[in-house]
């Protein structure tokens, strides 16, 4: 039971990560109609920026805070140079051009930092454990991640519920003309929004640093998971991204933790291990397939 609760927390923590990545992705799709594969690159850039600055200054907090403006700046730069030419193009063009960006950024990072992974350590103050559930000592750092995720979800909720931009998002307005109703320069607004979305990816990447290895290509795995999240939640819906991310996080973690054990009660150990490993790595995709059969547009289909 305790193990179950611990794994549930791990699942939540993975879900929070996925939410941070998926939120930016789905916002950008919802508003600009753009599918951006290079969102994973922003996550990677956030991680590298945080790791490098942390290692320079010795302060994780400084590293984390530095990563945010850096990813925002990179995000706005690619919006300015490439993305704004893609808003009126079909999805195939968007996929290909942003795929080109991935190739570019992966090699750029490899040329600057090399292929071997960088390592980041958790700062001392966050390096202990805490018993948020009695009997389960749980790493403080992971608790902090969950807290940050909740905070971001609240901020986003506030933005969407209370601002004019948010109103347009809720109204499902994907058309540039409708955003024009705001009476501001759309081009500038889009650049800023893109930077805003990039910050989430950068934040997730920076926080992932101490938990996973910081290396070239780290963004793609998380990008595809974020796609699964978005397909489950419904494209363009931030609420869907939150629910989808938590579902995927929990199902993936639980599957890996318990499926092999569960199968051992039914099958010989060797086979159970093999099948268990295979099944648990497929669990979230099977979840996605089930949702697709049930609701082809996702759990919370956005309008329009």
């Amino acid at each position: 039971m305790l193990l179950f609760l611990e794994q549930l927390l791990n699942g939540l923590q993975l879900g929070v990560f996925l939410f941070l990545v998926a939120a930016g992705l789905t916002l950008i799709f919802g508003i600009m109609g753009l599918i951006n594969l290079a969102h994973g690159s922003l996550y990677m850039i956030g991680a590298f920026a945080a790791a490098t600055v942390t290692n320079w200054t010795g302060s994780f907090l400084v590293g984390l805070l530095a990563a945010l403006p850096i990813t925002a700046a990179v995000g706005m730069a690619i919006e300015f140079v490439v993305m704004r030419r893609l808003y009126d193009r079909d999805h195939l063009d968007q996929v290909l051009a942003t795929f080109g960006l991935i190739l570019f950024f992966n090699e750029l990072i490899a040329m600057i930092w090399g292929r071997p992974p960088l390592f980041m350590t958790v700062p001392d103050i966050l390096n202990g454990t805490v018993e948020i559930i009695p009997g389960i000592p749980y790493p403080i750092y992971r608790v902090v991640i969950i807290g940050v995720g909740v905070l971001v979800a609240l901020v986003l909720y506030g933005v969407i519920a209370r601002t004019r931009v948010g109103m347009l998002i809720r109204a499902g307005s994907t058309h540039r003309e409708m955003v024009g109703a705001l009476g501001v320069n759309i081009r500038v607004l889009y650049t800023l929004l893109f930077g805003f979305g990039a910050i989430f990816a950068g934040l997730a990447g920076a926080m992932a640093g101490p938990l996973m290895s910081v290396q070239v290509g780290m963004g793609e795995g998380i990008l595809i998971l974020a796609f699964v999240v978005i397909v489950i939640g419904g494209i363009g819906s931030v609420r869907g991204a939150l629910v989808g991310a938590l579902l995927v996080g929990v199902v993936d973690t639980m599957g890996r933790a318990f499926l092999p054990t569960l199968l051992k009660t039914m099958l010989p150990p060797a086979e159970a291990d093999g099948i268990g490993a295979g099944l648990s790595s497929m669990a979230i995709y099977l979840l996605m397939a089930v949702v697709l059969v049930w609701k082809p547009r996702g759990l919370f289909p956005a309008h329009g």
């Binding site: 397909v231 490993a277 295979g278 790595s281 497929m282 995709y285």
Partner: peptide
Amino acid sequence: RTDGVHFIMITLAFAQMLFFLFVS
């Protein structure tokens, strides 16, 4: 069952699923 961006993401995801299957 879907189209557009959904279709792109879903085909990508299922391919990734098979990738992990063979890895395991």
